[in-house]
Design a protein around this nucleic acid. Sequence first.
DNA 1: CGCCAGATTGACT
DNA 2: GTCAATCTGGCGG
Length: 197
Amino acid sequence: MSGLLPQSFYEGDPAEVARGLLGKLLVRLLDRCRLSCIIVETEAYYGPDDPASRARRGGELRRIMGGDVGVALIYGIHRQWLLNIVAHEKGECGAVLIRSGKPLEGIEIMKRLRGLDDAHLLASGPGRLTRAMHVDKSMHGKPIYIRDHGLWIEDYVDVPSSMIARSHRIGVSKDLPTPLRFYIKGNEFVSRRVRGV
DNA sequence: CGCCAGATTGACT
DNA sequence: GTCAATCTGGCGG
């Protein structure tokens, strides 16, 4: 079997993990069918000091974001489920939002789940990606460094740093000074909600 | 207990 | 361009 990312992959600065996830394969097992997307866009979120982080509000999300790394954190907003992976250094708090993917396996199933034919719209956006891969709240809190829950991440390609661009996070009103969105330069499957990006 | 804001999407005046 | 749908947790805006 190919390279399942180990839990240790997610132990590190959220921005570094977010960069490292570009080019990896997000895999979903659904009724013995493999759905997968190449991750092309991510964002890093930190703890209570990050004004855009859900951890700022405390509660369950903060506990999960400060807990075991490599765990799925599913965040419901505006009728969408957003997929995050808990990632931080020891004793810290943070997560990586998976924003966009390029569909690779199970494309016909994804088209059915999305009710769309255009591959460029299947998983280009955090809410679109979760719908295309049938990820919902039932995945919340589940480790993704094992295959037991039907959702995991595998090695796929190495993306050289010259191919990685960064920008400010999309849709946040109070961002940190550091750009924390990472994406593959020029990739057609990156979501485009900001003019000129 | 109700209201508000927010890491979005897609349909429509 | 504009707006509504709908989930979560903090706060009384």
